[in-house]
Design a protein around this nucleic acid. Sequence first.
DNA 1: GCAAATTTGTTGATATTTGTCAATAAGCAG
DNA 2: CTGCTTATTGACAAATATCAACAAATTTGC
Lengths: 262, 262
Amino acid sequence: MTTYERRQSLMDLLRKQPGLRVPEIALSLGVSEGTVRNDFNALEEDGHLTRVHGGAVLSVSSNPSNSEFGIRHQERSQEKNLIGQVAAQLVSDGDSILLDASSTAYYLALNLKERSRLRVVTNGIEIARLLAHNTSNTVILIGGVVSADGSSLTGLLSEQIIDELRIQKAFVSCSGFSVESGLTEVHLEEAQLKRKAIESARQVFALVDSRKFGHEDLTPIARPLQITHLFTDSDISDEWKAKLQLANIPFTICKEQAVLPK
Amino acid sequence: MTTYERRQSLMDLLRKQPGLRVPEIALSLGVSEGTVRNDFNALEEDGHLTRVHGGAVLSVSSNPSNSEFGIRHQERSQEKNLIGQVAAQLVSDGDSILLDASSTAYYLALNLKERSRLRVVTNGIEIARLLAHNTSNTVILIGGVVSADGSSLTGLLSEQIIDELRIQKAFVSCSGFSVESGLTEVHLEEAQLKRKAIESARQVFALVDSRKFGHEDLTPIARPLQITHLFTDSDISDEWKAKLQLANIPFTICKEQAVLPK
DNA sequence: GCAAATTTGTTGATATTTGTCAATAAGCAG
DNA sequence: CTGCTTATTGACAAATATCAACAAATTTGC
C-alpha cells in the first residue's frame, strides 16, 4: 500500500465516522504511530482534516454539522483579537471604512467601539449590528443571500452598490495567502465581493493570521501590489517574514504590547 | 473518549439544556471535576460557552434565542404570535414571500420553521437569520442602512432590488390603519420600502394588531384595495369589524382556538 | 454580617500524546 | 547498479491531559 493510498483510505474512513485515533489506526493499518501522525499532519496541511489531541476529525470547512450559528469566532481568537486591536489604530472618527464578514474583521469591529461618526460598509451581519449600536455611526449592510450560518451576505445583488460608495479604507481577510497570488479565498461569492471592495477602496489592509500563509485557495482576490499594508500575528515564521520583505509588502506583526497586569 | 470528543458532546448537551453543572458532568462522563473545569474554560476561551459559577451556559454569540438587541417583542406578543400562526398557514413549501422588519413578521417567521425551500425577501435581520438557518431556504436580506437597534435595514439602496424579484406573497405590518388611507407608516424609510414591496407582490397580506386601528400616520403605504387579506387579533372592536366589512376588506380574526392539529 | 458549604485555581505527580532526530528502508531517475 | 529523494521506524524529550489534594475565592444559609 502506497502512502497516497493509505492517506486516501484515511479520508474515506473519516467520512464514515466522526473521528480517528492514532493508536487504533496504527494498529489496524499495521504501521507505526509515527507514520499515522505524519499522515494526519500532511492531510491537515492540505486542509483535508483537522488534528485534535489524540487523533483527527474532519476539517470544519468540510463538516456541515459544525456550522452552527456564527460560531466562527473560536479558532485563534487571541491572535485575531490582537490583529484587530492594532488595525483599529488606523481608523479615526468619521472615517469611511469597509469590513468583510470575516471573524478577524469582527474583532477589529470590537475594537472600534470607542470610535464615533464612522461610515461603515460591510456584509457581515454581526459586525453591522455591533457598529450600528453606536448611533453616531452610519452602517450600511450590503444586501444579498444570507449564508446558512447567518453571519454573512453574498451575491450579485450586492456588488453594484460598492461602486457607488467612496471607501477610504478597506479591511479584508482571506482564506489563503501566497507571495505569488496574494490574497486568495476559498468561497467564490465572498471572493467576488472582496475583489470589488478592493478595487474601489483608497487603501487596502489585509488581515491575515499566520495560519493562512502558504495556503493557496481557488480564487485570487488581491495581488500583492494592491495591498497597502498587511497585519498578522506573531506566530509568523521567519521564512515568511523574509518572503514578505522580499515581495515588498509592508506588514505589521501584532504582538501583546501591554504588559500583563500584576 | 478523546478530549475533543468529550468537549464536542458537552456542546451538544448544552444545546439541549440551558446549563451544565460541573459535578453532574464529572459524574456522568466519569472524569474528575478538574477536567470538566478545564473543558469549560477551554470552551469559553474559544467562545463556545460562557462560564458561570458552578457550571456553564451557552455563550450569547452562539445562542440564537438571545435578543440582546432591542427586539420589541414585548408588547402584545401573545396577539402577534397568534397572527403569525394563522398567517403562516398561507405559506407553502417553495413559496416566494416577502416579510418586512416588523415584530409581527418575526412571529410569522417563527411559525415558518417547519417550511422548506422557501424563497424569502426581507429587510429584518433577525427574520433573515432565523429562516436562513434552514438550508433549504434561500433568504435575501435587502441591503441598506442598519437601524440603531440593529433589527432592520432601510434606505434607497435597497429598493431597486425588489423590482427584480418576483414575489408571490408579501406580509407587511404598519404603524396605523384607517379605512380611508389603508395602511400607514410613521417611519418614512420603512414606508418607501413597504410601498415598493406591495407594488411588486402578487398578493398582499396585512398584519395589523388591533391597537393599530384608528391611528393614521404620516405616510400611506397601501390603499384598502391593494390589501388581499388582513389579519388582526380578537381585541378588535365590533365597530371596526363593521367598518372593514363595509370597506370590503377581507379579514381574519386570529383567535386562540384556531386550527390546532395536535 | 459571619460561618459553612461549594466552587475555583493551583500545584505536583502520572500517563498519554506529540514532535524531533537519526537510522533504515523503499521508491525512482539516470 | 548507483546516487538521490522520500517514507518509515524506534527512541527520546517536550508538550498536553488528567487527577487528587489543598488553599483561595465565591456563594449560600442563617
